[in-house]
């Protein structure tokens, strides 16, 4: 075992795969000479050269379509969005070109591409730089959506995303980049589409992904002290969702709390609720509870920002409610 930050883990995944396949290149704003706005791509320019580590102009719509064209032609681009907030500029290309062309072409065109970068709220950067896109992208057939929490998962899943023949949205989290985790000596590619039970429990299931896993783990510690044993599922992949793991857990615990930073309406939690209603309704002993970001643009003021985002306390309250314990 060794210790690795999420940032280093992501870099390791790219370095590993780029060293094995010349058709992989990375493009994005400040990924090369600046060494990455968040230093995820640090050192890659020196190692792989400017042909394969490309600083793009600030031109998201353009370089996204550009990279999709390269992918159609058989290259394997990794597109870094400085943050996913800027992917809105490129949404048409991601949805209409990357996601749909394989289907529209009757299977002829493939688009092996990774769109990666920090997603969701960072800290005090205001509404336009603090949005969670997990639900947005998961809505689209043709896209895979991955959102890891730990370093091991970040590396293993990014390796798989790069190897995947489909467009993969790889949602990172700025606040996790510096977080350290114990990892295997050699991190192998991890299968996309598999959730992970990160804490076993018998009383209630929590689903979470990305940095919300941390909050859920903290909440579980508090809840354990009052006798509630929480099972936490780190979704890791949002699409395709590992329904089986969630359903099996709910069948065991009979209660479910979903946690996400994104908004409630048309969010991941309500989609999971729909699946549970269909597949495990009779196993539920209580209504499903949802912990989500509040339905507002994220405010700047520290106190308001805190109120707008999910908290450990809210998870504790939701779990108690699901367990009928006040």
């Amino acid at each position: 075992m060794r210790s690795l930050t999420v940032r280093e883990a992501l870099r390791e995944a790219m370095r590993e795969e780029m060293s094995k396949d010349d058709s992989i290149f990375i493009i994005g704003e400040e990924v090369a000479q600046y060494q990455g706005a968040y230093k995820v791509t640090q050192g890659l320019l020196e190692e792989f050269g400017e042909k394969r580590v490309i600083d793009s102009p600030i031109t998201e719509h353009g370089f996204t379509g550009f990279a999709i064209g390269a992918a159609f032609s058989g290259l394997r681009p990794i597109v870094e969005f400085m943050t996913f907030n800027f992917s809105l500029q490129a949404m048409d290309q991601i949805i209409n070109s990357a996601a749909k062309t394989h289907y529209m072409s009757g299977g002829q065109v493939t688009c092996p591409i990774v769109f990666r970068g920090p997603n969701g709220a960072a800290s005090r950067v205001g509404a336009q730089h603090s949005q969670n896109f997990a639900a947005w992208f998961s809505h689209i057939p043709g896209l895979k959506v991955v959102a890891p929490y730990s370093s091991e998962d970040a590396c293993g899943l990014l390796r798989s995303a790069i190897l995947d023949p489909n467009p993969v949205i790889f949602l990172e989290n700025e606040l996790l980049y510096g977080a350290s985790f114990e990892v295997s000596d050699v991190i192998e590619p991890l299968e996309i589409g598999k959730a992970k039970i990160v804490r076993n429990g018998k009383d209630v299931t929590i689903t979470a992904f990305s940095i919300q896993v941390k909050l859920a783990l903290e909440a579980a510690e508090i809840l354990a002290k009052i006798g509630i044993e929480v099972e936490i599922i780190d979704l890791r992949t949002i699409k395709p969702l590992d329904c089986e793991t969630i359903i099996n857990s709910v069948k065991k615990t009979n209660r479910l709390v979903t946690v996400e930073e994104g908004w409630f309406f048309a969010g991941i939690g309500v989609s999971i609720a729909g699946i549970i209603m269909k597949e495990a309704f009779d196993y539920l002993d209580a209504p499903i509870e949802f912990v989500t970001g509040k339905d507002i643009p994220l405010p700047y003021a520290s106190n308001l920002e805190k109120l707008a985002l999910p908290s450990c306390e809210e998870i504790v309250i939701a779990v108690k409610k699901a367990c009928y314990k006040n």
Binding site: F63, F66, I68, A71, F72
Partner: peptide, 11 residues
């Protein structure tokens, strides 16, 4: 147009 530009890049 950007896709066609990316095709050129790949060539």
């Amino acid at each position: 147009v950007p896709i066609g530009t990316g095709l050129a890049f790949a060539e």
